[in-house]
């Protein structure tokens, strides 16, 4: 291929990438632009910047959803912890131990992967009601944790199985208990996959809408997706504050990605180039 052709191919690739990025970023940009508009400005020019900028929209947005953000963070972080700890233990058991019924249990567990989460809504609601645990943030975190078990165990088991057997045998020779093996071997070596799973579970909990809407009745316990609905007026939408709130709601996720992006990418590509 001549250098001219290579250059053309490069331009083509770059154009494609830019187009894809445009599709991804233009909605974000529009959200940001609208967040500084009054409804009147929005009616006149919905997509282009207009002046004066209405910074008060962000104040309204923050006032409306700051409480929900705190609730979402607490619930999502709790959910991540409650998901990963038992998932790691279960995955270790499936990966390193032999016991009767292991295969049946494993396939039963995998079968749960095919069950849509929404199917459980009514039974879970009834269960929580009977346990007198409705309207509890801890109960909601537990639900998220339960929902995330299967996928996390599935991924972690495969990961642990791929670790060199010699390492575990050496640890056993040194007298390490299973918990010590997890602490000293599994956790240090599976940081990237644990990070990835943590982010995925955090996102799932953060974005969940129906579950908190149904399980939490007190407004001060509600989470961000339900809180954002408060700004979605039935008759006349207040576009500026609504878009400001959407932007604010995205900030925690952006921060998390900024600090954990390396882990996330490493985790996603782990095992991609096995030799």
């Amino acid at each position: 291929m001549s250098s001219k052709q290579a250059k053309r191919a490069e331009i083509g690739k770059h154009t494609l990438v830019v187009l894809v990025l445009l599709f991804a970023f233009i909605p974000l940009l529009i959200t940001f632009v609208i967040s500084f508009k009054s409804n009147q400005q929005f009616a006149v020019a919905p997509l282009t910047p207009t002046f004066p900028l209405h910074f008060e929209n962000w104040a309204i947005g923050w006032e409306t959803i700051s409480g929900y953000i705190a609730n979402s963070i607490v619930i999502s972080v709790l959910a991540v912890v409650l998901t990963l700890v038992p998932a790691l233990l279960s995955a270790f058991v499936f990966a390193r131990f032999r016991f009767p019924g292991k295969t049946v249990l494993w396939y039963a567990l995998l079968g749960l992967l095919f069950m849509p989460g929404i199917m459980n809504l009514v039974p879970l609601f009834t269960l929580l009601r009977d346990l007198n645990m409705l309207n509890s943030m801890l109960a909601l975190s537990t639900l998220y944790a339960v929902g995330g078990q299967v996928f996390c165990v599935f991924v972690l088991r495969n990961f642990i199985e791929d670790m060199p057997q010699d390492l575990f045998e050496a640890a056993q020779v040194d007298g390490a208990s299973p918990l010590q093996q997890i602490w000293s071997l599994v956790i240090p070596m599976s940081g990237s996959i644990l990070g990835t799973l943590a982010i995925l579970r955090f996102l799932a909990s953060w974005n969940s809408f129906v579950m908190p809407l149904v399980m939490l009745s007190s407004q001060y316990k509600q989470v961000i997706p339900v809180g954002l609905m408060r700004l979605d007026g039935e008759y006349i939408k207040l576009w500026g504050p609504m878009m400001a709130s959407f932007s604010i709601a995205a900030i925690p996720l952006v921060i998390i990605f900024l600090f954990t992006m390396r882990l996330f990418v490493k985790g996603l590509t782990a095992g991609a180039v096995k030799g």
């Binding site: 609601f125 409705l134 007190s218």
Partner: peptide
Amino acid sequence: VPIGERGYRQFVNTGLIGGM
């Protein structure tokens, strides 16, 4: 407790049935 029109039905129904 302002709930959007989209979620109002579910919120009220489950709330009443759940006693909350």
